[in-house]
Design a protein around this nucleic acid. Structure first.
Lengths: 344, 344
DNA sequence: CTGAAAGCGCTTACAG
DNA sequence: CTGAAAGCGCTTACAG
């Protein structure tokens, strides 16, 4: 990190021009003779000049970095495949352009807001990603007030403030219910995710609608929080009811896998005695037995699109909403027609 | 991100001193009368002054940020609980001090080196974490040449270049083997992790030593790469051998969970017919059936300690190696004495 | 099309 | 103990 750093002045003197011109050439601004520009650029390349990000930031009030702050229980996060894939998508657009990703992990709402505030006030980032949208999400108002560019993953309650990159997850729930209904299930339960989160309540609502559409009562819904522990708990509660469901639609895969563990523990065969479905399409779901039927979304693409949208917003001061292909049903082996009534 | 930013000059004029003095007061350098310092600090607080990170970086050649570059298959990463917990540990020391974490995800060795080089050359970070150490790890030499402060997770092959924060994982393997042996197992297999990685080969070596110590041949070792897919594959290979093991020690939890799926699929009862053990202590392991006996390490503490060590290295230009408490055996339900011979 | 100069907001010798 | 000034490495009006 020492190294006799070569600067714009070196390039300027070697090329026999002023620093200003070098800067113009570098940034592709017009007002530089094509020939001069070429000369400058080649000198810069020869010298191996890397313009200082810091110096540029100071003049520009720009940082060439994007921010991501994650408020999550580490256990839930660890089991969640979303972020690794999402971030590799983000990186795939940032790296080639020389941008960086600043990541923060926080545990509560207060430090989450604090972190966004700090990141922006310190000009550490030029824009931020907003994930895990919640009802009455305080982050939206904060960032609007600060005037920070942001992109939301999915639509927030109030649209139009920031561009959204959306990937529909309700269709998957609907398809799941239809699948189960078509297999003959009538008593279908739902183990819901955190209801403060938009995607938690959205999946639950989609479940209710789909049930209603099939003429069924969505009366077996248990609240959980996306964690494996809660998934197991909810499953036990469901099994202890007087009337058991014949199928369970979980709001994410880790809860489904934990539920599967409970079912196996109680000697309930999946899918013969009970059908289950997950949500997210995590890799491990492919390898449990039976392989988990789930809904998979392309998190890598999501990250890529969100990064592109945010970059566009930063440079153009506006960017359109983007609708990604909806999450797809991944039919595997964890559902089957319900056992004949006598078998229960 | 607009906001009429208040600067050191504002503070200086309000306090009736020069910018230099404000800077001295802020940075706790001596040469400032205690009373003056107090006045300056209180004016700064009143005005709500946040010294510009960028400006400071430019003068200082310092960035107040640490770098983490991750080279991983997103699928493997997603199933790995390590990084979420590790990073929350890192964050817990960075955030209070106003430092940030710059995260990169890359897929191959070349872009990994490239990323380290860029991060350091651009002064985007003041130091970096080195995880997933490999044999002949090119990153070590690169960072040594650059002169970048770095801390390694675990000891690299050549010690003493950078401080290491180590958490022994061989003891856990040894205990695992001893446990199985004490339960009567003799044919114990190992599904190994990526051998280019130090922790992959280290766990394998520990397995061999422990077997040898028990007077057993470590002749049932299958190579895998820490992914669930490879874990399933390896398990099938093991089952297709003429002589089957009675227990399988997996190098990580996702492989063990995938292996469990294969065993269940083939109707092999765990632990009655086959004992299995994992490694890492991921949350989900608690909820599969049977709950996975594994070895758990405190990744949060690891992150915290690594961050502290790296910060110390940056400010003091040296920091001692740190040895964390070894990973602990988490005894759950996936092992039992082998079935009587006739039962196979 | 090009140059000289001021400015971004800090830090740090150098004088006093 | 304190002030005035130069410097970090860029960018950007402003002149020509």
């Amino acid at each position: 990190m020492a190294k006799p750093q070569i600067t714009i002045s070196d390039v300027a003197s070697h090329a026999g021009v002023s620093k200003g011109l070098v800067s113009f050439a570098l940034n592709g601004r017009n007002g530089v003779a094509p020939q001069t520009r070429r000369r400058i650029l080649s000198v810069a390349a020869e010298l191996g000049w890397r313009p200082s990000v810091t110096a540029r930031s100071l003049s520009n009030r720009t940082s060439l970095a994007l921010g991501f702050v994650l408020r999550r229980n580490p256990d839930v996060l660890a089991a969640d495949p979303f972020f690794a894939a999402f971030m590799s998508g983000v990186e795939s657009v940032l790296a080639p352009r020389g941008w960086a990703l600043v990541l923060s992990m926080v545990s509560d709402a207060e430090s989450e807001l604090q972190t966004y505030r700090r990141l922006c006030a310190d000009h550490r980032v030029d824009g931020v990603f907003l994930s895990d949208l919640r009802h009455d999400d305080a982050r939206i108002e904060l960032l609007r007030a600060i005037g920070a560019p942001a992109v939301t993953l999915g639509y927030p309650e109030e649209r139009g403030i920031f561009p959204a990159v959306d990937l529909d997850d309700t269709l998957g729930v609907t398809q799941m219910v239809r699948l189960l209904v078509s297999q003959g299930h009538r008593r279908i339960a739902h183990v819901a995710g955190t209801q403060e989160m938009l995607h938690g309540s959205r999946r639950r609502d989609a479940f209710c609608s789909a049930m209603a559409a099939a003429g069924l009562q969505p009366d077996m819904i248990i609240g959980a929080d996306f964690s494996a522990a809660a998934g197991a708990q909810a499953t036990k509660a469901l099994l202890d009811q007087r009337i058991r469901p014949t199928a369970i639609v979980y709001a994410n895969d880790p809860m489904a896998i934990a539920g599967l563990g409970v079912l196996q523990h109680r000697g309930i065969r999946v899918p013969a005695d009970m059908s289950i479905t997950g949500f997210d399409g995590i890799d491990l779901g492919n390898y449990v037995h039976p392989a988990l039927t789930t809904v998979g979304s392309d998190a890598h693409l999501w990250g890529q699109s969100a990064a592109e949208t945010l970059l566009a917003l930063i440079t153009n001061h506006q960017a359109p909403d983007l609708e990604l292909p909806p999450a797809e049903l991944m039919l595997r082996s964890s559902t089957a027609p319900p056992a004949p009534a006598g078998n229960r």
